Simulated scan of single mutants.
Amino acid sequence: MTETAAHRLLLVHAHPDDESIGQGATMAKYVAEGRGVTLVTCTAGEMGEILVPELEHLAADKDDRLGEHRQGELAAAMAALGVTDHRFLGGFGTYRDSGMKWHEDGHAIAADDIHDNAFWHADLTEAANHLVAVIREVRPQVLVTYDEFGGYGHPDHIQAHRVAMYASQLAAAPSYRRDLGEPWDIAKIYWGAISESRIREGLRRLRAAGDTTTFEGMDPDGDLPAMFRPDEDISAEVDAGDYVEKKLDALRAHATQITTDGPFFALSNNVGAQAFGREQFRLVKGTAGPGAGENGWETDLFAGIPG
Score class of each variant (00 low, 15 high):
R252G: 05
R200V: 06
D18Q: 02
I50T: 07
G286M: 03
F228A: 15
L89C: 11
S197Y: 08
Y176Q: 01
E46F: 04
T260H: 02
G192H: 13
S195C: 15
N117F: 01
L283G: 11
A108W: 00
D242I: 06
G91E: 04
E19A: 06
S98Y: 03
A250Q: 01
A303Q: 14
T94M: 03
V12E: 05
G67A: 15
A288N: 07
H161T: 05
R178Q: 07
D113M: 06
L10F: 05
P230I: 13
Q141C: 07
A240M: 04
A187N: 05
E279H: 07
H7P: 03
G289I: 02
I258Q: 11
V163F: 00
L131R: 00
R229G: 06
L203P: 02
D300S: 04
V163Y: 01
E232H: 13
E19I: 02
N295D: 14
T125Y: 04
L224N: 13
E56N: 14
L81H: 07
A77E: 09
H161G: 02
H121L: 15
F149C: 09
D156V: 00
I21L: 13
D63I: 03
V244M: 08
T260V: 11
G22V: 05
P140K: 14
A288H: 08
A226H: 12
A110C: 01
R200M: 07
A128S: 15
I135D: 02
Y30V: 10
I21Q: 06
M27W: 03
H69M: 11
S195T: 14
N117R: 10
Y146F: 15
A187S: 14
A160F: 01
V284D: 11
F88A: 09
P306G: 09
V12F: 11
A122Y: 04
S175D: 15
G91Q: 00
G272K: 08
S235T: 11
G82Q: 05
G72M: 13
H86Q: 15
L58C: 06
E46P: 08
A288I: 12
A44L: 13
T299K: 13
A288Y: 01
L124H: 12
I189A: 12
T84S: 15
H7M: 10
T213Y: 10
T41M: 07
I21F: 06
G304D: 08
F92N: 13
A128R: 04
L66G: 06
K247T: 05
T38A: 09
A59W: 07
S197W: 09
R96K: 12
V142G: 10
V144M: 01
D156H: 00
E49N: 12
G217C: 06
R229P: 03
P174G: 04
D105W: 11
L131P: 00
A75Y: 01
H161A: 06
K101Q: 14
K285N: 11
D211L: 01
L224F: 12
T125F: 12
H107Y: 10
C42P: 04
L180E: 09
I199Q: 02
G34M: 04
A118S: 15
A133F: 01
R136W: 00
